[in-house]
């Protein structure tokens, strides 16, 4: 009896979800399998569960976010948690309080889970050392955005059945992108072949050491790809000039029909949003329901975040 319980018990190896780098294959498959069970629920008319009833979830967003914050908020609510979203613009942080002091203050209110987004890489790691609850990284600096990568994986699996053996191109501002990093780690673990496509000025040092092939010619980088992931030019993180102009960038690195033609015939397009139409992606392609998974990514994002909240929320 005890053995069966042990086998059935869903247990993630980590206390916190700080990055894909910390997860094992078994952690990942647990999260994705769990997420699948929520897809149907999210489409139904009655979306409320009570799995996290009595639990408190705090969303601590130090950077503006629309989709990630609302996705986490909805995910928590659908699981029955009490969700509080902190508006940092008006908080003590602006009055000089440090991240750790904020963490200690929140910790005293006994939350069960803190979802954090921060402009500094490693901020969720620091936070996790100081609080007694689970910390979920909703994006830190340029480092990781694990739930985005997980929802991307779920979206691909939902369409293609698997990730192993697929050829995935990640295109655009790799340098400033936490989405790119998390996706590189995750898709590599799941057995995909990864091309990164970017102008040299937007490639981080030694990126090939993360297990990717690097292309500065988008046409070569997209050759026979199954999935094309586009990234936004992150102007807010750029100091100085990285590309001559949006026009030149679009010419060489924007996703257009003719460049997409080099990928597989049924290649699918993804984008973590928000999109800059006409800068990194042709507006018609973004809306092409046969090719673009962009809306599906948002939809499955809620399911993935429900899975993460459930699995990482302590004392379940």
């Amino acid at each position: 009896m005890a053995i069966i319980k042990k086998l059935k018990a869903v247990k993630i190896n980590q206390n916190h979800l700080l990055g894909i780098q910390d997860l094992t294959i078994s952690d990942i498959s647990q999260i994705l399998n769990e997420a699948k069970t929520f897809i149907g629920l999210n489409k139904s008319s009655s979306k409320k569960l009570d799995l996290l009833r009595g639990k408190t979830q705090i969303n601590l967003f130090f950077e503006p976010s629309t989709r990630t914050q609302s996705s986490f908020e909805l995910a928590g609510k659908r699981l029955g948690a009490d969700v509080m979203s902190m508006n940092i613009v008006n908080s003590a942080i602006k009055k000089g309080e440090t991240l750790i002091d904020t963490a200690m203050t929140l910790n005293a209110m006994h939350p069960d889970i803190i979802v954090v987004r921060h402009q500094d890489s490693g901020a969720p790691n620091l936070l996790s050392q100081k609080v007694n609850c689970a910390v979920i990284n909703a994006g830190d600096g340029r480092r990781e955005h694990p739930t985005q990568a997980l929802l991307d994986a779920l979206t691909i699996i939902n369409r293609r059945g698997k990730i192993e053996g697929l050829k995935i191109a990640i295109c655009g501002d790799i340098l400033h992108s936490r989405v790119a990093r998390s996706n590189i780690y995750l898709m590599n673990m799941l057995g995909a072949e990864i091309n990164v496509v970017a102008p040299k000025t937007l490639l981080p040092h030694s990126i090939e050491r993360l297990g990717v092939k690097v292309f500065t010619d988008m046409k070569k980088g997209l050759d026979k790809c199954d999935i094309v992931m586009m990234l936004r030019l992150q102007h807010e993180r750029m100091q100085g000039s990285f590309v001559p102009s949006p026009r030149e960038y679009y010419e060489y690195f924007g996703l257009t029909q003719d460049k997409l033609a080099l990928a597989k015939k049924d290649a699918l397009i993804m984008h973590p949003g928000p999109m800059n139409r006409g800068v990194e992606i042709d507006t018609n392609l973004a809306d092409d329901i046969n090719r673009s998974l962009i809306r599906e990514q948002v939809e499955l994002g809620v399911a993935v975040r429900m899975a993460c909240l459930k699995l990482f929320c302590k004392n379940i």
Partner: peptide, 19 residues
């Protein structure tokens, strides 16, 4: 070196810190 925090290299890429 503006905005840089650690050596520009594989570690800075992995940690997401500007090099």
């Amino acid at each position: 070196s503006q905005g840089g925090l650690i050596n520009d290299g594989e570690i800075s890429t992995r940690l997401g810190l500007q090099g």
